[in-house]
Amino acid sequence: MAPPRLVTVAGPPSVGKTSVISRALAVLRDDGVAAGVVKFDSLSTADQDLYARAGLPSRVGLSGGLCPDHFFVTNIEACLAWGERRGLDLLVSESAGLCNRCSPHLDGVLAVCVVDVLAGIRTPAKIGPMLRLADLVVVTKGDIVSQAEREVFAFNLRLANPRAATVFCNGITGQGAMEVAWHLARAPQVETLDGRRLRFAMPSAVCPYCVGETAIGDVHHRGNVKRMRFDDLP
């Protein structure tokens, strides 16, 4: 039994990741590809129902108080094993990039970033490794903005990530899903993740607030503290 192909899909909340994945996997299912999804979210998600409706096996992991990407990296191996037990040809891991700074992309694993053109033409410059180190960028909601904005957005994406292919996909009508599916079907197969590396370090956010501190004031600032500079002060 061949190990499944693995894809990490990340993107800001509400850009349409679930729709894009459902649409693309529906295309692949018609080609006989057995695909499944693991959804990482922070507090709650109804996406399992959406995937069930699309006839796709899925598992949900809720990170609760943890950073979703830290939660992801400690669970992805178990997810891959689940996919293998299910006999999947393709496993997609979906996670919301809540802070524009995190990134679940792994070396040797197809990395997809979903962004939405409504977020603004300058958004590509504001998203960190989740976008900069992706292999494929999927742009959603292009059907409701002008051609000019789509072209400027695509250009800014190429500036932010000159390596990646860019595909426009409409999650509602499925236009562009075939293009996304073509890329997913070419993801490398992954036998094990043991010993592989993240493409970029997770945010270094070790401070009292990470572990439940709620009080404000200098005396509570310990660990990794970084202060803003104000140029009207000496």
Binding site: G120, I121, V145, S146, Q147, H183
Partner: peptide, 27 residues
């Protein structure tokens, strides 16, 4: 087809709007 540097086809439909908050000339 699937990884074009730029699209062969531009689309224009009645649902489309400008959403960027800029003066016409600047955009």
């Amino acid at each position: 087809r699937f990884a074009p540097e730029c699209k062969l086809v531009a689309q224009l439909s009645q649902n489309m709007n400008f959403v960027v908050d800029l003066p016409v000339a600047e955009f």
